[in-house]
């Protein structure tokens, strides 16, 4: 990954980070709706969809900001990758169970679960992978990655 131009990595980081920041916006504004979107997946027990709706949007915001600004960059991309895998699994199980539900992804109003969402998340997952394994980085506020690593 170190052969990739660091400014291309920065561009990938900005795009990936913006996706997470943008996705968090509507969820922060309306946690009640986000909780109902989560509940529609029928996978979260004990009414915990509300707790997730309170915390997850801020997690997405911090991850997005961290990826763009280079603050806890490694931790941010590990989390972005982990969440993208989780989102892929959740969307896939909903499709397999025949649920025709809103994605609740926060990128586009009224977007339904489907293969295009899974493909989109796989692309973002690839971007997280590239950023995590790139050591030749520009714009990294804290902590800085030594090039010899």
């Amino acid at each position: 990954m170190n052969k990739i131009n660091p400014y291309l990595i920065l561009l990938i980081r900005c795009l990936l980070g913006l996706v997470f920041v943008y996705a968090s916006y509507d969820k922060i504004l309306d946690p009640g709706k986000f909780a109902r979107d989560i509940a529609n997946y029928h996978i979260v027990p004990f009414g915990l969809e509300n707790s997730i709706a309170i915390i997850l949007p801020w997690l997405e915001l911090l991850i997005g900001a961290g990826i763009i600004l280079g603050i806890f960059l490694d931790g941010s991309v590990v989390l972005s990758g982990s969440f993208l895998i989780l989102f892929i699994v959740m969307i896939f199980q909903a499709m397999m169970r025949g649920f025709n539900i809103e994605c609740g992804c926060g990128l586009k109003e009224g977007e339904m679960v489907g293969w295009s969402k899974i493909l989109e998340n796989i692309v973002f997952l690839g971007a997280s992978y590239i950023v995590f394994y790139s050591r030749n980085r520009v714009l990294e506020i804290y902590p800085k990655t030594p090039l010899s690593e």
Binding site: I28, P31, G32, A35, A39, F46, G47, L48, E49, N50, S51, A53, I54, I55, L56, P57, W58, L59, L62, I63, G66, F72, G75, S76, L79
Partner: peptide, 24 residues
């Protein structure tokens, strides 16, 4: 990052007028 998110989410949810309960 997770600890900060829990903290900010909890504070923001407590302060906002349309905050939701932790359990649905």
């Amino acid at each position: 990052i997770i600890a900060l998110s829990v903290l900010i989410g909890a504070i923001f949810n407590t302060l906002r007028h349309d905050g939701i309960k932790w359990l649905a």
